[in-house]
């Protein structure tokens, strides 16, 4: 494969690296799983980086906190500073937050947290499908979201216990919208109004935040788990649910694309890669 080279970083405890790489490859990207301690991998030459979901270092101390201090993240920080696209999915997002790469108001400082889910009467791990809207100020400058239309509702699955974005004092109300790349919304795109459509009490209904430049994106939902239409539950509301219900009979390969494919297609698009379907 000769498309743009994408490193999918595998930390001890990552568990979504292979399906993430597969979703990226299906968009013409040369995605390779790279172990966090493989110093011969030459990741400096990669064109983009993905930190996949899972439980890096078993979530010891705090989700993402230990992986953020690993040497491989030096290369990711340098790449981000050079403008290369970096995506963190779920635990990868927690690593980017603990690295200070997002929101990045003051370079290198940790100015956000992914705190424990807050919802009435429940705590801990939550796995469900949610609906997202692109943040108006951010999506346009974010390669991963470059194919999303304003107002487009994107259903994706979440699965996390610590997914509540919290910003350093003063950040939530004044600067949050500048970096909120994806917001939780109701199935019709309206105000989520708390649980269940904002599933974790996240500040500003944020499901994904970026740095100010837009090349680094930390998102809690899992696009790789919705890259194919068959991964969408038939019970889902809206047009993606309609498409899934209409899907019948045997499929060739992975079948039609699901809603999560747009994230990987967006990166491919930013590199000028087109895949004929």
């Amino acid at each position: 494969m000769s498309g743009p080279l994408v490193a999918v970083l595998q930390f001890p405890g990552s568990n979504c690296e292979y399906e993430t790489a597969r979703a990226a490859r299906s968009q013409g990207l040369d995605a390779r799983v790279v172990r966090w301690n493989d110093r011969s991998a030459g990741i400096e030459a990669c064109d983009a980086f993905i930190l996949p979901g899972g439980f890096s270092f078993q979530d010891r101390v705090r989700a993402g906190a230990v992986a953020a201090k690993e040497a491989v993240m030096d290369a990711v920080v340098r790449a981000a500073g050079a403008g290369k696209p970096v995506l963190g999915i779920c635990n990868g997002a927690q690593i980017l937050v603990e690295s200070g790469l997002v929101p990045g108001w003051s370079a290198g400082n940790v100015e956000a947290a992914l705190a424990g889910n807050m919802s009435p009467g429940r705590s801990g791990y939550l796995s469900r499908w949610i609906y997202l809207l692109p943040g108006q100020e951010v999506a346009a400058r974010c390669p991963w979201l470059s194919l999303m239309e304003p107002g487009q509702v994107l259903p994706l699955p979440i699965a996390h216990a610590e997914g509540r974005f919290v910003f350093a004092t003063g950040g939530a109300s004044s600067r949050g919208p500048q970096v909120t790349a994806l917001r939780y919304c109701a199935p019709d795109g309206g105000d989520p109004g708390g649980f269940p459509w904002n599933p974790n009490g996240s500040c500003d209904d944020a499901a994904a935040i970026s740095n100010m430049e837009g090349n680094v994106l930390a998102m809690m939902p899992h696009p790789e788990r919705a890259a194919c239409l068959w991964q969408v539950p038939p019970s889902l509301c809206g047009p993606w649910g309609d498409r899934r219900r209409a899907l019948s009979g045997p499929m060739e390969g992975t079948g039609p694309e699901g809603p999560g494919a747009t994230v990987f297609a967006g990166l491919a698009n930013s590199f000028g890669v087109r895949v004929d379907r």
Binding site: A65, A68, G100, G108, N109, A112, A115
Partner: peptide
């Protein structure tokens, strides 16, 4: 935790 290089046991933004 102030940065990648400083602190570990608590993230003062949420803790």
């Amino acid at each position: 935790t102030r940065s990648r290089r400083v602190g570990l046991l608590a993230n003062p933004v949420s803790q």
